[in-house]
């Protein structure tokens, strides 16, 4: 979905920025949004990543970003708990993102 959206809407997204802190994602508040997503797995309450997004985009988008992270805590668990396979067609479509983000090392990469 990320590559597809960026391509369809002519956003010059640098995918590698997700795993390379020094790289510029090429999107408004890209670094702040990445940091928010990556911090979702923590256990401490800390509003700093939301505040950082709000500083760039404003409060409403920042709240939405937090909500999206929450939604994907559901999606991630549901698919990993039930073994929903990715399938060959999706793997083909996502080959570049799988490679750039080095996803083949993930536990369910082979499923």
């Amino acid at each position: 979905m990320l590559s597809w959206s960026a391509t369809e809407t002519n956003h010059d997204l640098e995918l590698a920025a997700i795993v390379t802190p020094a790289a510029d994602p090429g999107l408004a508040a890209g670094r702040e949004l990445i940091n928010l997503g990556l911090s979702s797995v923590g256990t401490a309450s800390n509003g700093s990543t939301v505040a950082a997004v709000a500083a760039v985009l404003g409060p409403e988008p920042a709240l939405k970003a937090a909500c999206v992270a929450g939604a994907f805590e559901i999606y991630n668990r549901v698919v990993d708990a039930t073994g929903l396979p990715t399938g060959p067609a999706m793997r083909r479509d996502l080959a570049s993102i799988i490679d750039v983000l080095d996803l083949n090392g993930f536990p369910h990469a082979g499923h």
């Binding site: 979905m1 990320l2 959206s5 960026a6 809407t9 956003h11 997204l13 997700i18 795993v19 994602p25 999107l27 408004a28 508040a29 890209g30 949004l33 990445i34 940091n35 928010l36 997503g37 990556l38 911090s39 979702s40 797995v41 985009l57 404003g58 409403e60 988008p61 709240l63 939405k64 970003a65 999206v68 992270a69 939604a71 994907f72 805590e73 999606y75 991630n76 668990r77 698919v79 990993d80 929903l84 990715t86 993102i97 983000l101 996803l103 993930f106 536990p107 369910h108 990469a109 499923h111």
Partner: peptide, 23 residues
């Protein structure tokens, strides 16, 4: 809510990466 699809998916991808969710 003021967040473009690509920005939304950037959060989604980053969250999933943190959870090591391949799907």
């Amino acid at each position: 809510d003021g967040l473009h699809r690509t920005q939304i998916e950037l959060v989604a991808t980053s969250t999933s990466l943190a959870n090591e969710c391949f799907y």
